[in-house]
């Protein structure tokens, strides 16, 4: 059981972040968008890996939330393409996944240059703090 106290509202002065969400599940992207917009951040959604990759190559995002398990062009494929273009480390990618990836697998992604990870189902406070941490690191 977790006991929540009222968590202080985000510093109003904290910078508005540009967040790209790549996930094939629309209910999840909608929830994340709602949450981040309530916290005064801007969200752009890509529903598959290909579209996400194209957006990353064209624009700059403060943070990218990347789902690993997607049909066809999945999160791993996005990471690999960015890696081969030498673009993995310039982008702040937070991997989020419900799949049964091992701790070793996650550590390996971080070693390759992924900024951070969070396991689904998501603790939204933790998510927000990871987003801010990644963006400012």
């Amino acid at each position: 059981m977790k006991f929540r106290t009222n968590i202080e509202k985000n510093d109003k002065d904290s910078k508005e972040l540009n967040v790209l969400i790549i996930d094939d599940n629309e209910q999840i992207t909608k929830m994340l968008t709602t949450f981040l917009e309530l916290n005064n951040h801007k969200c752009i959604v890509a529903n598959d890996g290909k579209q996400g990759l194209a957006l990353i190559q064209e624009n700059h995002y403060d943070v990218i939330l990347l789902d690993l398990a997607m049909p066809e062009f999945d999160g791993y494929a996005v990471i690999e393409s960015l890696e081969s273009k030498g673009m993995l480390k310039n982008n702040k990618i937070i991997v989020f996944t419900a799949s049964t990836i091992t701790q070793e697998g996650l550590d390996e992604l971080v070693n390759r240059g992924v900024s951070s990870y969070i396991l689904k189902p998501i603790d939204i406070d933790l998510l927000l703090s990871k987003i801010i941490q990644s963006a400012t690191s």
């Binding site: 209910q27 999840i28 929830m31 709602t34 419900a98 689904k120 189902p121 998501i122 939204i124």
Partner: peptide, 13 residues
């Protein structure tokens, strides 16, 4: 786990 993500997300909000 997937449907639990939006459930938990909205509840926490």
């Amino acid at each position: 786990k997937t449907p639990l993500v939006p459930i938990l997300g909205y509840v926490q909000m």
